[in-house]
């Protein structure tokens, strides 16, 4: 290493618009797959709870999918979806998010107390209304916990897409490495971590606002756990 400083503030100052565009691209590549996965995971999780036999094979498939290395999957997809396209990166990211969200949904639905379910039935709720008004709201804290893990991992994984030419902020790592210029790399690491942090906080806040009972519930269980120690 020569006497190149770790961060050249001048470079960052003159590339603000560029960094903003990369961050936005990164957010789309990383977070749209999580949303798609959520839309698939909730019905799939419901199916797995209704038909418990389904869950074992589904869990096995997703455990294996979760073990697949990102670079390898991107590469294998290239002939079908093209080099350096968003799709090539977004398909595997959707699968990784599913691998987290499906078990989270199933765990959440399974944790709904049987007494709660029976009370709803006793009050005259039909199966669909019970699902929408009782079971899903009761499971929401588990789903959001899964969403947080999925979103944060997706944001850091998306950067690997840079190796096949489409990784949002990940491009900064390739660029900085090829030019022996650490500034873009540092900027990239900080922006990826910041994007992950902001997304995580947004999810926590969303849970507080949309489902205050769930936030309260989590705090209560934590307090309980603390008391048993």
């Amino acid at each position: 290493m020569t006497d190149e400083p770790l961060v050249r503030w001048g470079w960052i100052g003159s590339h603000l618009a560029y960094l903003r565009d990369l961050t936005l691209d990164h957010a789309v590549i990383a977070l749209v797959p999580v949303l798609i996965a959520l839309v698939i995971a909730v019905p799939l999780g419901l199916l797995c709870t209704r038909f418990p036999r389904l869950y074992q094979p589904v869990a096995l498939v997703f455990n294996v999918v979760y073990a697949l290395p990102g670079v390898a999957v991107f590469v294998v997809l290239i002939p079908y979806t093209g080099l350096a396209t968003r799709t090539t990166v977004m398909i595997p990211l959707t699968c990784y998010a599913l691998a987290v969200l499906v078990p989270a949904t199933v765990d959440g639905l399974r944790a709904v107390p049987e007494a709660l379910r029976q009370s709803a039935t006793a009050m005259g709720y039909g199966p669909w209304r019970r699902l929408a008004a009782v079971e899903l709201p009761a499971a929401v804290s588990y789903v959001v916990a899964g969403l947080r893990v999925a979103a944060v991992s997706s944001i850091s994984l998306a950067a690997v897409g840079a190796l096949i030419g489409r990784g949002g902020l990940g491009y900064l790592f390739i660029d900085g490495f090829q030019r022996t210029f650490p500034t873009p790399i540092v900027a990239g690491i900080v922006l990826v971590a910041a994007l992950a942090l902001v997304t995580d906080l947004a999810l926590v806040l969303a849970l507080r606002l949309l489902a205050p009972w769930a936030a309260h519930e989590r705090r209560a269980t934590r307090r309980q756990r603390g008391a048993t120690q």
């Binding site: 850091s156 690997v160 990940g170 900064l172 790592f173 390739i174 790399i185 990239g188 690491i189 971590a193």
Partner: peptide
């Protein structure tokens, strides 16, 4: 979990 591997390795 939030730290990008590729960035850490290149840095």
């Amino acid at each position: 979990r939030a730290l990008p591997t590729l960035g850490l390795v290149t840095l």
